[in-house]
C-alpha cells in the first residue's frame, strides 16, 4: 500500500517535470517558459518528495526531504525573478509611455 502510494506520487511528479520541460521547449517567449519551469517543477518536486516521505527510515530524513523541497522552492522563485528581470518586459514601459502620450495629446487637442 505504501509502495503503491510512492509509485503513484513519484509518477505524477515525473509527469509534472515532463510538462515543465515540454513547456520550456514549446512556449513562445522567455517569460512564458518561466511559468512552466517554476510552477510545474515545484509541484513535481513536491509530489516526488511526498511519495518518498513515506519510505524514509527516520524523522531526520523526513526533515531533510522537507528542507530540500522548501529550499528548492525558494531558489526557484528567486531564480525565476532574476531571469524575468533580465529578460526585459518586452517594451512595457515604452508601450505605457506611448499610451500616456497619446491620451495627453488628445486632451491637449480638445481645448
Amino acid at each position: 500500500m505504501i509502495d503503491l502510494f510512492t509509485i503513484v506520487m513519484t509518477a505524477a511528479g515525473l509527469i509534472f517535470f515532463a510538462a515543465g520541460t515540454l513547456g520550456l521547449i514549446r512556449f513562445p517567449d522567455t517569460h512564458s517558459r518561466l511559468h512552466a519551469l517554476t510552477k510545474a517543477d515545484n509541484l513535481g518536486l513536491g509530489l516526488i518528495a511526498l511519495g518518498l516521505a513515506v519510505q524514509v527510515p527516520g524523522p531526520a530524513d523526513l526533515f531533510k526531504l522537507i528542507l530540500i523541497w522548501a529550499l528548492a522552492i525558494l531558489a526557484a522563485g528567486a531564480t525565476a525573478q532574476l531571469v524575468a528581470r533580465i529578460a526585459a518586459p518586452a517594451g512595457l514601459g515604452d508601450d505605457e509611455k506611448a499610451q500616456d502620450g497619446g491620451s495627453d495629446g488628445q486632451e491637449r487637442r480638445r481645448p
Partner: peptide
C-alpha cells in the same frame, strides 16, 4: 493555488495547440 497553477501550466504544455495569450500588465 500552486497545485492549480502547476496543473494549468502542465495542461497548456501538453495541448496540441498552444492556447496562450501572453502579455504584461502592471
Amino acid at each position: 493555488q500552486s497545485v492549480l497553477g502547476a496543473t494549468d501550466v502542465a495542461r497548456r504544455a501538453f495541448r496540441l495547440h498552444l492556447a496562450l495569450a501572453p502579455g504584461f500588465c502592471r
